[in-house]
């Protein structure tokens, strides 16, 4: 296999490009269809480039369904979730790294073990718990159960452990309490790790489907992913509207990814390695 020669290079490029196209086609198709008219949608052979960019479908989705409401819900849930998760992660990682108490590391390894247990299993009881607490259709139910995420705590704890002891003592001698040290020194230094967590958690929250579906009944509490599935009923065979709806669900993450690509990829790599 000649790889260093020109033919080799061309072949590699060709393979990669074909692969890339196959990865992207669904998205392209979704975006294109979202701008089509119903007639254009049913055309065979398919239209690859719409003659005009209709916004009609988007208007329909945003106005008729409660889609606007769904988007707001997703945003609220994501914001609450990320804020609380970051808060809990910081406090917990601090306790497991800088504070000393007997059995600390053993207890932490135990929790790491818990990471293995699938969410689907926990969801059964958690759903029952939500029902019993009468938290169905509340933001509480949508956010609180998952703000303690051992993976994120693991990532941040590692980062904290890398901060030299001398910095801690310097701060204590300067008169800082543990709490002040955490927020004035450790957290600012840990920005990269925290951004990682914000990105991972934000994406996860926006994209989550199973749990929001379980704990919401009322349409006005649905998140955008759950709303999308209910919209499928309403759209019937109007695929152009369906694509527009899907597009709305997907586009924020696509934009985020375009901007924060490197960060997100390193975040996933870091998170994945531990998984």
């Amino acid at each position: 296999m000649k790889e260093n020669g020109k033919t080799g290079k061309v072949l590699i490029y060709a393979a990669l490009i074909i692969g890339a196209v196959m990865m992207v086609v669904p998205f392209y198709w979704m975006i294109i269809t979202a701008f089509k008219t119903p007639e254009q949608v049913a055309q065979m052979p398919p239209i690859w480039w719409p003659t005009s960019f209709l916004t009609e479908n988007f208007e329909y989705v945003l106005s008729s369904g409660e889609f606007a409401r769904y988007i707001i819900n997703s945003i609220i849930v994501a914001v609450i979730s990320v804020s609380l998760t970051v808060l809990v992660t910081i406090l917990t990682a601090f306790a497991f790294s800088r504070l000393k108490f007997p059995g600390r590391d053993i207890i932490f390894s135990l929790f790491l073990g818990f990471m293995m247990v699938p969410f689907e299993l926990l969801a059964i009881t958690n759903y029952v718990t939500i029902v019993r607490l009468e938290w169905i259709d509340t933001y509480r139910a949508l956010t609180l159960p998952y703000i303690a995420n051992v993976l994120y705590i693991y990532i941040l704890r590692n980062f904290f452990l890398g901060i030299p002891d001398s910095l801690y003592w310097a701060a204590r001698i300067d008169g800082a309490s543990n709490f002040k040290y955490l927020w004035r020194i450790m957290v600012p230094i840990s920005k990269p790790a925290i951004i990682t967590i914000v990105l991972l958690n934000g994406i996860d929250s926006w994209n989550s489907f199973l749990w929001p579906m379980l704990v919401t009944n009322e349409p006005e509490m649905r998140t955008v992913t759950v709303g999308l599935t209910s919209f499928v009923q309403a759209a019937g065979v109007r695929y152009e509207r369906l694509m527009a709806a899907a597009f709305i669900v997907v586009i924020p993450m696509m934009i985020l990814f375009a901007f924060a690509r490197k960060y997100i990829i390193t975040a996933v790599a870091r998170g994945g390695i531990k998984g």
């Binding site: 489907f209 899907a246 993450m253």
Partner: peptide
């Protein structure tokens, strides 16, 4: 990178509907 990793950040439920189509 953008092309190959895009599916990772997008909601399965949404992309699934595109595939359905």
């Amino acid at each position: 990178q953008f092309a190959y990793f895009l599916p990772m950040v997008t909601a399965t439920i949404a992309v699934g509907i595109v595939w359905k189509w």
